[in-house]
Design a protein around this nucleic acid. Structure first.
Lengths: 220, 220
DNA sequence: GAGCGTCTCCCCCGCCCGGGGGAGGCCGGT
DNA sequence: ACCGGCCTCCCCCGGGCGGGGGAGACGCTC
């Protein structure tokens, strides 16, 4: 079954470009377009696309708002890929925290764009850092994986949060971390929640995976 | 504060050896000895040791039974290290599945024995594969980490279980795995439980950590 | 002094998770 | 024909987890 995609971007040029790129693939179909965030929800309800490629910076309602709105109001929401021009777009991270499943640079090569759509459609990377990682791999990044690491750096974990994440990668529960740091369990929960939000992880398992894949901790 | 240890082994020679090795450390105190599994529970209640070094093969009640009994009946149970003569002792894995925190070969060097006791005392490796990994590192194992990997091989995951574990390392929830494999959520839960038991993991996070550290999956 | 970020703790709440059982069907080996 | 392993699904149940709020204390900068 083909992957259906809804394009959301205020620039017709970008939409045309994405459409052209994606429609080269027999298993990907662009089922609709929107020029602003406000029109997204009705279109999603009507077209029920598998994936929404969403620009972050748009008039009326930006990509962050729109992402939040879609995830909040639509049952079985589509996967959402945030599209951006700038590598370190602050809004992208906000969108990812709002629940987007991946992000894409507008200057990405066609193969990368196609790849990203397929990945999130498969649900293979509900965990967005995996997308980052795979894209980075296609970029031919050096083994250290600078781009994935950048997500963590960008996430700007505080010292305490980093320490909590480290203990999470040791398999400790919130209670055990609390004992280790001699603080309350509620405090640990706060830090864990902050870590999850900053990494775009849904639960501690995804956070630990991100920690491993980004090189925050090493298996050996 | 010093680490207190209870020794459980039917051979006086082994007990004496362990005592000699451990008492060389100023921060480790052997607080008691038992010659069979049946005497362990009252002694644990009385002495409240941090760590129990438990032989697997013993008369009356073996180490597996004793481990289970201690964990079931004692509040705030001690950490339990399973001691064995043979590298691939089937019973060891049973004991680990019963809830033991680590294992130790009798022919291990003194430094390794001390190390193992300290590790579990710190709770640093509630997750036993971490212990395996660290011991393997001391053994000067090659990077591939044969010994840790052996745990997984030994665990003998079925095809289905391995597939479920792989999806767990992608950050998927039980429900998502169920959809992916087109089976019921209850089925996935069964497989996950089996994986946790075989890996000696307490939750999916620990299982994923084990998967990464054993090379079952690779971060890159 | 006002703001901001960080760390700490608290509440409520729903849900997923994992443990404990059991059970049926399939297949392959003895 | 029997048994054992595997896969599948089911029940109940408790607890940890994570979201959503809020709040006070400290130290920093402006």
């Amino acid at each position: 079954m083909p992957v259906t995609v809804l394009l959301v971007d205020d620039e017709p040029l970008v939409r045309a470009g994405l459409r052209a790129v994606l429609e080269t693939q027999p298993d990907i179909t662009v089922v609709g377009e929107a020029a602003d965030g406000a029109s997204v929800i009705p279109l999603v309800r009507q077209l029920r696309p598998d994936v929404v490629a969403m620009d972050v910076r748009m008039p009326l309602m930006d990509g962050i708002e729109a992402t939040r709105a879609v995830l909040r109001t639509v049952e079985q929401p589509p996967k959402i890929i945030v599209v951006t021009t700038f590598e370190n777009d602050e809004y992208v991270y906000d969108a990812l925290r709002a629940g987007a499943d991946g992000f894409l640079l507008k200057r990405a090569r066609p193969a990368e764009i196609v790849h990203a759509v397929r990945l999130v459609a498969e649900g293979e990377s509900l965990l967005f850092p995996a997308t980052v990682r795979k894209l980075a791999a296609e970029y031919g990044d050096r083994p250290g994986n600078a781009q994935a690491r950048a997500v963590l750096e960008r996430a700007r974990l505080t010292e305490r949060e980093a320490e909590v994440l480290r203990l999470m990668t040791r398999g400790l529960s919130n209670g055990e971390i609390a004992v280790r740091l001699t603080v309350g369990t509620e405090t640990v929960k706060s830090h864990v929640s902050a870590v999850l939000a900053k990494l775009g992880a849904r639960d501690r398992t995804q956070a630990v995976i991100t920690a491993f894949e980004s090189g925050f901790v090493t298996p050996s």
